[in-house]
Simulated scan of single mutants.
Amino acid sequence: MSLFCPSWIYSAICALTAQRYLGESLGLEAFASKYASVLADRYSDINYEMVLDTSESYLRHLMDAGVEDASEILESYAFHRIAFDKNGTPRKIKGFFSSSLDGLKTQEVSAEAAAKEFKPFIYMYRTKPELAMPAGWTWGAIEDGDWLKEMPDLDVSFLDGI
């Protein structure tokens, strides 16, 4: 049975893709290709074009908002998608019998919806300092994060974008 990617994982990975693009000297295509291939190995609904489109949308929204701290906003967004459910309660990744990293039986990821969810976060981030990522938090601190913990450390080369 094919399993689908949870939207919180997809959004966090797209934010990481955009953030790494801003901080490194490779094209967005290389990062999108690398992260899409990692997600596609686990989930049947993810492809390169989706990750690229969503990451570009995040960057476009940041540019339209005229922010100077784009990387911080992307980090904080990824943190909030990983650490909290939509209702604001702390996310529990592992349960007694399953993990939310295992995937879903129904598809919930949409590149358009992910881009729309990010835009309000930019403006909320400006008015609510508590949305900033906690000092010292890293992806490695994700409790029961398994493979998700390693995402920021993936080696990406210009060949990944070809």
Rank of each mutant, 00 (worst) to 15 (best):
M1C: 00
M1D: 01
M1V: 09
S2A: 11
F4D: 00
F4E: 00
F4P: 00
P6Y: 05
P6C: 06
W8G: 13
I9S: 04
Y10T: 04
S11G: 13
S11T: 02
A12I: 01
T17L: 00
A18M: 02
R20V: 12
R20P: 08
Y21A: 02
G23T: 05
E24A: 07
S25N: 12
L26T: 06
L26G: 10
L26Q: 10
E29V: 12
E29M: 06
A30Q: 02
F31I: 02
F31M: 05
S33K: 03
K34D: 01
A36W: 07
A36P: 07
A36G: 14
A40W: 12
D41R: 14
Y43D: 06
Y43H: 09
D45G: 08
I46V: 15
I46P: 08
M50N: 12
V51N: 04
V51I: 12
L52A: 13
L52G: 03
T54Q: 11
T54M: 10
S55A: 15
E56K: 15
E56G: 05
L59W: 01
R60T: 14
H61I: 05
M63P: 00
A65E: 04
A65D: 00
A65W: 02
V67P: 00
D69Y: 02
A70H: 06
S71G: 10
E72S: 12
E72R: 06
I73K: 01
I73W: 03
L74V: 12
S76H: 08
Y77A: 07
Y77G: 04
Y77N: 09
F79P: 00
F79H: 09
H80I: 01
R81M: 09
I82G: 07
I82D: 08
A83F: 02
A83I: 06
F84D: 01
D85K: 13
K86L: 13
K86T: 13
G88W: 07
T89E: 11
T89H: 11
T89F: 03
R91Y: 01
K92G: 10
K92Y: 05
S98C: 02
S98E: 09
S100H: 07
S100I: 02
S100Q: 15
S100T: 13
L101G: 11
D102W: 11
T106H: 03
V109W: 14
V109L: 15
V109P: 15
V109G: 15
S110L: 15
S110P: 09
S110Q: 09
E112Y: 12
A114W: 05
K116W: 07
F118W: 08
K119S: 13
F121Y: 11
M124V: 02
Y125C: 03
Y125Q: 01
K128A: 14
P129T: 04
E130L: 11
L131Q: 03
A132F: 03
A132R: 10
A132E: 08
P134K: 03
P134Q: 03
G136N: 02
G136T: 00
G136P: 03
G136F: 06
G136D: 00
T138I: 05
W139S: 04
A141R: 10
D144V: 04
G145S: 04
G145Q: 09
G145H: 08
W147D: 11
W147K: 08
L148E: 01
K149A: 14
M151Q: 02
M151V: 00
M151L: 13
P152I: 07
L154C: 03
L154G: 09
S157A: 03
L159F: 11
L159V: 06
L159R: 07
G161C: 08
G161A: 05
